[in-house]
Nucleic acid binder design. Structure first.
Lengths: 339, 339
DNA sequence: TTGAAAGCGCTAACAG
DNA sequence: CTGTTAGCGCTTTCAA
């Protein structure tokens, strides 16, 4: 590790090259009005001294930072990972660098405050713009643009990319109905999150469309966790008249369902069909890639939108509808976005 | 979204509170020598104006930035995620904020350059120190301390936290041997990475210790990917005299083994035992948590080491040995670290 | 084509 | 306890 006590500054480079700092700065910023031999000499010195421009100083002085920030909730969720992948891909194709901040455990309180803290910290100083994933906070203080991905509550004041949760739930339910199921259980997500509610509404609408009655005992609480899924699946499967299929609000819940079924000796998929929304873990385990792609695309779209905002280009409203694909014991996810 | 054209500065706060900037600065940095009524007034103004300190300006002026950087390879790997979790946990218990940078696809070239770019960019400006996970680069130019987690090649010039790959492989093999297996296949990791080699050495040593001959046809190439695992498992399982057990170099490879076995109609674990190093995906799928913990602890330890370095405290050499736990079809991971 | 000089927002002496 | 002042490293006028 080459560890110097004081880093080499633009001053050092200027002195070594026998020019002024402003000339070095011009070279660094690829300005054209520099004599080519001067330029070469400076570049050589930069290389020799191992100079890197100081991010802080640069950010402070100039408006463009070439840096985009991504604020994601608990990275333990495959959901976050997949979005990050799409973001990474889009960043790689751009001229921006990416910094990621995680707000920690999504189930803990104070997430909204954490988010706001980071937004202020970053967007008022070193980043040109920010993507916020699954934000709990509804409002932010910021100078630079923000694009929100799957916010808990949609705020029409700023652009967002959202999964088509309602349609996805309809698709999943229609799939189960087409298999002949008439008693389908539903394990809900965290009720304060809009997407969980829209999935529930999709569940209810599908039953209604099929002309079936709603059995309230088949709808349970839930919290997007495997533990919750296990608890509520056990509840459903030990009913006097248990469901023949379960639609879980997300992949973690679905894992809990598998565990509960296993423990109770219920065979999947022979005795019980299971569909989980966002069923990433399983898809990955089974070597499927379709589901991941939806989320990655959300991240990708969000970055493209953000870059347009940063460049002051207009956003055209646009529906980005992903094809739906269902696999046994797995699920579907569709999304819309404005680019 | 509250979006102002120019952010409120410490100047604005000072003016509004009728004090000087330095007094505001003192309050911001929790200095004690400020009259409590002055402090209250300033805090009220800060709150009212929605002031947030400019990260760039602060970083530039003061040595302490309260920010730690984490550079991880491809976030698609559960390995990276688990380490990030441990890091997050340690950060939450500290006074530091965390910023993450990912170098993208681990299999792509140029990773080392990417790493060096970010180390210079961050560590010479806005971070107090950096954790680098699975670094491909061996050397860095940096002002602030670095702690390396599982570097490809260990550089004795700077502190590192490393998994006990050799011992872990021994444990995994002894487990398979204790099950009575005498023909055990090995699917290697990327050979340019030190940990892959140490796992191979553990495999070989275990056989030697058991007084068994080494059958070269049972050792295949590999690349830490499911695709590679599938390919080489197929190769092993279609041998004239196929192995009764396979030890895969990581969890991705193991997934490939399951796929290959499934396709060839080989029953696991009845006809074939499989152990995968770092078997995170499966452990998670099966609801196990032990394996994750090892990696998270590596991240945790790394942060504790880094904070000591930042505070100029000495590092004591210390072996942190995790208990070994083996589960059928899954694996073990132990680690050591200096804190 | 280049250099001198003015700050960006902030912290840290140094005085009072 | 508080204000004045001097920069941190960089970009950007404005002159030369």
């Amino acid at each position: 590790m080459t560890m110097k006590r004081r880093s080499v500054t633009i001053q050092d480079v200027a002195q070594a090259a026998g020019v002024s700092v402003s000339t070095v700065s011009r070279v660094l910023n690829a300005k054209v009005d520099v004599a080519s031999d001067t330029q070469e000499r400076i570049l050589a010195v930069i290389d020799e001294l191992g100079y890197t421009s100081n991010l802080a100083a640069r950010s402070m002085r100039s408006r463009k930072k070439n840096l985009i920030g991504l604020v994601v909730p608990d990275i333990g969720f495959p959901y976050s990972i997949e979005i990050m992948k799409g973001v990474n891909r889009a960043i790689a194709e751009s001229t921006f660098d990416l910094l990621v901040y995680t707000t920690g455990d999504i189930h803990k309180n104070g997430t909204a405050l954490h988010e706001q803290h980071y937004v202020s910290l970053l967007n008022n100083s070193i980043t040109d713009g920010l993507i916020i994933v699954a934000s709990a906070a509804a409002d932010f203080i910021t100078d630079a643009p923000i694009v929100s991905v799957d916010p808990h509550v949609v705020n029409p004041n700023y652009p967002s990319v959202q999964g088509t949760n309602y349609q996805g739930a309809l698709d999943a339910m229609n799939y189960l109905l087409s298999l002949g199921h008439r008693r389908i259980g539903f394990i809900c997500g965290r009720p304060e999150i809009g997407s969980a509610i829209r999935r529930l509404e999709g569940y209810q609408a599908a039953l209604k469309n099929a002309g079936m009655d709603l059995d309230e005992t088949l709808i349970t609480l839930g919290d997007f966790s495997a533990k919750g899924g296990y608890k509520y699946a056990t509840q459903l499967l030990t009913l006097d008249n248990p469901p023949t299929a379960i639609f879980a609000a997300n992949d973690q819940s679905a894992i809990g369902v598998y565990q509960a079924a296993d423990e109770l000796g219920v065979q999947i998929p022979n005795e019980l069909s299971v569909v989980g929304f966002d069923n990433i873990s399983e898809a990955k385990y089974l070597g499927l890639t379709t589901v991941d792609q939806f989320l990655a695309d959300m991240g990708h779209i969000a970055i493209l939108m953000l870059i347009k905002l940063i460049n002051n280009e207009p956003l055209e409203e646009q529906i980005h509808k992903m094809p739906t694909k269902l696999v046994e014991r797995s699920s579907c996810q569709t999304l819309t976005g404005t680019v």
